[in-house]
């Protein structure tokens, strides 16, 4: 990592904190994915990685390249925006698919929605 030697110490510390925060939260999220018991519980776990897990690493990368190239480098924020916008879509679709499959098989869903039968498309179109 010889390219990093000209960075000031405070920048290196700041980048390290963001890196460890992001990576740690992502790890805790996937740990929850493994440890939690039901699917509806597990669907909460990856949001740790996709909210502040991604946020921390994107921040670290932005600070690092801005310091390294002595000009603002903020294109990583696109990844942050992209992940923030897309994660709800995937998780919502997945949750609805799981609910649909559970109802189809007559499994015990924790608490049934008052809607009988046909559920509507979400308004987010």
């Amino acid at each position: 990592m010889s390219h990093a030697s000209e960075l000031p110490i405070w920048a290196a510390l700041l980048i390290s904190v963001f890196l460890l925060l992001g990576a740690g939260l992502t790890l805790v999220g996937t740990l929850g994915l493994v440890r939690l018991q039901t699917f509806y519980d597990r669907i909460h776990a990856p949001t740790l990685g996709s909210s502040w897990g991604t946020g921390g690493i994107v921040m670290a990368s932005m600070i690092f390249f801005t310091m390294l190239q002595s000009r603002p480098v903020i294109h990583e924020i696109l990844i942050g925006i992209f992940v923030t916008v897309t994660t709800p879509v995937t998780l919502m679709l997945l949750a609805r698919a799981a609910l649909h499959r559970d109802r189809l098989e007559g499994r015990d869903v924790p608490m049934a929605s008052p809607a009988d039968g046909e559920t509507d498309e979400p308004a987010a179109d």
């Binding site: 990592m1 990093a4 510390l13």
Partner: peptide, 9 residues
Amino acid sequence: MSAVILALA
């Protein structure tokens, strides 16, 4: 020094 910190992190 900063390279060491960063490499570790």
